[in-house]
Amino acid sequence: MSQSRILLLAALLAAPLALPVTAEAKPAGDRTIAAVDTDSDGTIDLAETKAVAGAVFDKLEKDADGTLDAKELKGRVSRNELKQADPDNDGTIDKNEYLALVEARFKAADPDNDGTIDAKELRTPAGKALARLLK
């Protein structure tokens, strides 16, 4: 093999190492932080979280009745969680109920009560439950 082919092969093999880390290569907590963290401080606060959750609610709410049912929620909450988030027991949650659920999950994912959630906290079970509501 000629020296130029060897150099070309070496360059091709080394090229992926020089690429920046993409969103796909980042852990889930980091991707969620990047999607929600509007002030780019590396954490998400409740206001940022609720803003994204409100947009997610609007995207999921397909039938224009102002509520989400289990089908529209697409597995983001279990039947029991839906029941708990549904104080009027109509089998659906409206935007205020959805945001209340998001706030409860935010607080559960913030064990140090500093008002922010970092990527490490998002990788906990409570953080993952919150992240499901933000996708």
Score class of each variant (00 low, 15 high):
residue 31 R to C: 04
residue 49 T to R: 14
residue 60 L to A: 06
residue 61 E to W: 10
residue 19 L to M: 06
residue 24 E to W: 11
residue 63 D to W: 04
residue 50 K to S: 00
residue 27 P to F: 04
residue 58 D to N: 02
residue 60 L to P: 01
residue 56 V to T: 14
residue 39 D to C: 05
residue 34 A to P: 06
residue 38 T to Y: 10
residue 18 A to D: 00
residue 36 V to N: 02
residue 33 I to L: 14
residue 23 A to V: 08
residue 40 S to V: 13
residue 52 V to L: 12
residue 46 L to C: 11
residue 20 P to E: 08
residue 52 V to K: 13
residue 37 D to Q: 10
residue 33 I to C: 09
residue 49 T to Q: 12
residue 29 G to H: 09
residue 25 A to Q: 15
residue 23 A to K: 09
residue 35 A to Q: 14
residue 37 D to A: 08
residue 53 A to L: 04
residue 32 T to M: 14
residue 41 D to I: 09
residue 46 L to N: 12
residue 44 I to Q: 08
residue 26 K to L: 15
residue 26 K to I: 05
residue 24 E to S: 09
residue 51 A to T: 04
residue 56 V to W: 05
residue 19 L to N: 01
residue 47 A to G: 12
residue 43 T to R: 15
residue 63 D to T: 11
residue 29 G to L: 07
residue 24 E to H: 11
residue 41 D to K: 12
residue 20 P to D: 05
residue 61 E to T: 08
residue 18 A to V: 01
residue 61 E to C: 08
residue 43 T to A: 14
residue 46 L to M: 15
residue 17 L to F: 11
residue 22 T to S: 15
residue 51 A to H: 01
residue 50 K to I: 00
residue 35 A to S: 13
residue 41 D to L: 06
residue 37 D to N: 15
residue 32 T to A: 14
residue 58 D to L: 04
residue 40 S to W: 03
residue 57 F to V: 00
residue 62 K to F: 03
residue 52 V to E: 04
residue 44 I to R: 11
residue 17 L to I: 06
residue 39 D to V: 13
residue 52 V to P: 00
residue 26 K to D: 08
residue 38 T to F: 11
residue 39 D to K: 11
residue 44 I to M: 15
residue 36 V to A: 03
residue 37 D to S: 03
residue 24 E to C: 01
residue 17 L to P: 01
residue 36 V to C: 13
residue 51 A to G: 02
residue 42 G to E: 10
residue 29 G to P: 07
residue 17 L to V: 07
residue 27 P to Q: 01
residue 55 A to E: 14
residue 22 T to Q: 13
